[in-house]
C-alpha cells in the first residue's frame, strides 16, 4: 500500500497518523488485504450478495409525528452550543 493510498484513506476517514503509526498501519493493512484475498478462492459466480442474514420483513412504524426527545437535553451533552444551535469552527473564509 503506497503513501498516496494511505493519504487518500486518511482524508476520506477524517483521520491523521504520526509517522510511527502510519508505518504500523501500512504494514497491518498490507497483511489484512493479503489475508482477505483468500476470498478469491471461493467461486461466487451467480451468487447473489447477502446484506442481512435473517429474512424478515422490516415493519414500519405508523407515519405519525411524535415528540420523543427534548432538544435541550440532547444539546446538553454537546461540546459547544448557543441559543439552540451547535457551534462549530468557521466553515467559510469570511474574506
Amino acid at each position: 500500500m503506497d503513501d498516496e493510498t494511505i493519504e487518500r484513506l486518511l482524508t476520506l476517514s477524517q483521520l491523521s497518523l504520526d509517522i510511527e503509526d502510519r508505518e504500523k498501519i501500512r504494514r497491518d493493512l498490507d497483511a489484512i488485504i493479503g489475508f482477505i484475498e483468500i476470498m478469491d478462492q471461493v467461486n461466487t459466480e451467480e451468487v447473489e450478495p447477502l446484506a442481512h442474514a435473517v429474512d424478515l420483513d422490516q415493519p414500519l412504524r405508523k407515519d405519525r409525528a411524535v415528540i420523543d426527545f427534548d432538544r435541550d437535553v440532547f444539546q446538553s451533552i454537546a461540546p459547544k452550543t448557543a441559543d439552540g444551535f451547535y457551534l462549530v469552527p468557521k466553515v467559510l473564509d469570511q474574506n
Binding site: 482477505i36 476470498m39 478469491d40 471461493v42 461466487t44 451468487v47 447473489e48 450478495p49 447477502l50 446484506a51 442474514a53
Partner: peptide
C-alpha cells in the same frame, strides 16, 4: 472486496 464478501456471506449462511 465488499460485494465478494456479501456473496460469501450467502454461501456460509
Amino acid at each position: 472486496y465488499y460485494l465478494k464478501a456479501q456473496k460469501i456471506r450467502r454461501l456460509v449462511r
